[in-house]
């Protein structure tokens, strides 16, 4: 179900990412102040924006889960947070490398975006432990959704507050990220944003496909081997996806025969 059109999506992502890299390194001019080092910008900033959007999406999916009680929404929220955590580590690493290159330090507390990003990551790092610590799958899903909503709201608010805390110490242009960038920079930046978003969506669908396949497999196993044959489900942080036992299971049996 999630695997549908995954291949064209993956190919588009690949093409967009390749184009971004080619344009970033061979077409966009070197920055007047940062020189070649500014190329990290095309990686770091779009990645950060996509990561945060992923967290906010997870919050929205969690709202949908609490409203509909559909475990698929819980799975969407879970996979989104999982993926954004992976992207977030890349943001922190690339940001840290950039800070070292341009300011000579690995970490700069006066940089509000970096600090608030760390806070967001620290908060989301507790998502998996929280899930794992609740045994009952239904309650686990519910509590995880409550967490995802709260944390999703925390993301934008936290950015505003941490920015306020340093803005008056370090006066700077607070406007749009790309407002003061020349044309070619802007083109590459937006292209990079699109390809990072595509990469996120591709990987998200990839993982959703995998999770959905395992859930179907489990349903099929129950159908074939009977309930008593199945060992007690392992305690896990992964949402239990309730696949329609009739629909998905029976079609699977039909295919097996």
């Amino acid at each position: 179900m999630y695997g549908k059109r995954l291949r064209p999506l993956a190919l588009t992502t690949f093409a967009a990412l390749t184009l971004t890299l080619v344009l970033a390194f061979f077409w966009a001019p070197n920055d007047a102040n940062q020189g070649f080092l500014q190329k990290i910008f095309y990686l770091h900033v779009p990645l950060a924006i996509v990561t945060l959007c992923g967290f906010v999406y997870a919050g929205l999916a969690a709202i949908a889960h609490l409203r509909t009680r559909d475990s698929r929404w819980d799975m969407r929220s879970y996979v989104a947070i999982h993926l954004s955590l992976v992207f977030g580590v890349a943001v922190l690493v690339s940001g840290s490398i950039w800070a070292k290159g341009s300011w000579g330090v690995w970490w700069d507390w006066s940089e509000p975006t970096l600090v608030s990003f760390l806070l967001v990551m620290l908060l989301y790092a507790t998502y998996q432990p929280l899930r794992f610590a609740i045994e009952d799958p239904e309650r686990q899903a519910r509590y995880a959704s409550v967490f995802a909503i709260t944390a999703g709201a925390f993301v934008p608010i936290n950015f505003v507050i941490v920015r306020l805390s340093t803005a008056y110490l370090h006066p700077r242009v607070l406007g749009d990220i790309s407002a003061n960038l020349p044309g070619r920079f802007q083109v590459v930046f937006y292209l990079s944003l699109v390809s990072m978003a595509l990469l996120w969506i591709t990987l998200w669908r990839y993982e959703m496909t995998s999770k959905h396949a395992s859930a179907q497999l489990r349903a099929l196993k129950r159908l074939l081997a009977g309930d008593e044959d199945e060992a007690l489900p392992r305690r896990s942080a992964v949402p239990t996806l309730s696949v329609g036992a009739g629909g998905a299971g029976s079609s699977g049996v039909g295919a097996a025969r």
Partner: peptide, 14 residues
């Protein structure tokens, strides 16, 4: 949760 004393501060401090 099974580790409430750990999770409480870990979630609330950030």
């Amino acid at each position: 949760t099974s580790v409430r004393d750990l999770l409480g501060p870990m979630i609330s401090l950030p």
